[in-house]
Amino acid sequence: MRFGVVVFPGSNCDHDAWYAVSRNLGHQASFLWHQESSVGNTDAVIVPGGFSYGDYLRCGAIAKFSPILGAIRRHAESGGLVIGICNGFQILVESGLLPGALLRNRGLRFVCKPVELVPATLNSPFTGALRAGERLKMPVAHGEGCYYADDETLARLESEDRVAFRYVDNPNGSLNDIAGILNEGRNVLGMMPHPERATEPLMGSAAGLGIFQSMVDAFAGAAR
């Protein structure tokens, strides 16, 4: 499977994502520069963490106008897989590919620590290889990760089984302990925790591999 890792000015988890899926997962990965208007032959897009365009104005607010976002939107519309991690999640929310918003953490401080997640659904290309109730340990590292949506949107997310992950111990005040959500088509995932930072025991956990492996399995299944 070919992963494409987006590079915005200010992305700083791009190399980590590349390393996770190429070295630790063993698939192909290349970088997609923010000014490109096509994702090329990429099968799955990773929108990585960092501070795209300095996060000026609002996290992700400027990135949504970049040429690559148009390409990502088309990729998603045609059913392609997209995973946005941390700043990537913020960008997907800002660009309307996912609903809701990410607010300042409840504690008003940046928080970096390992957290535990549980998959809230196994019915998605990002969670298919996980086990129900499985606790996934991986770091969070963000200042604006408090997931917020209005009551109606939240109710829809829940009723349509689109909450992908929930925190065991909520680090940022996210509504319904939401750590990650899916789009209506279930092929776009946004999550605040960093699965790419948990892809080998030396990093303290390899639990993030299950998410990328799910994508590989789903892609292979769809291609069959």
Partner: peptide, 17 residues
């Protein structure tokens, strides 16, 4: 001092053993 260092991203670059 976790109040201090949890405000620092100490895992980015995935090299922190």
């Amino acid at each position: 001092k976790h109040w201090i260092w949890e405000q620092y991203d100490y895992t980015v670059r995935t090299n922190t053993v």
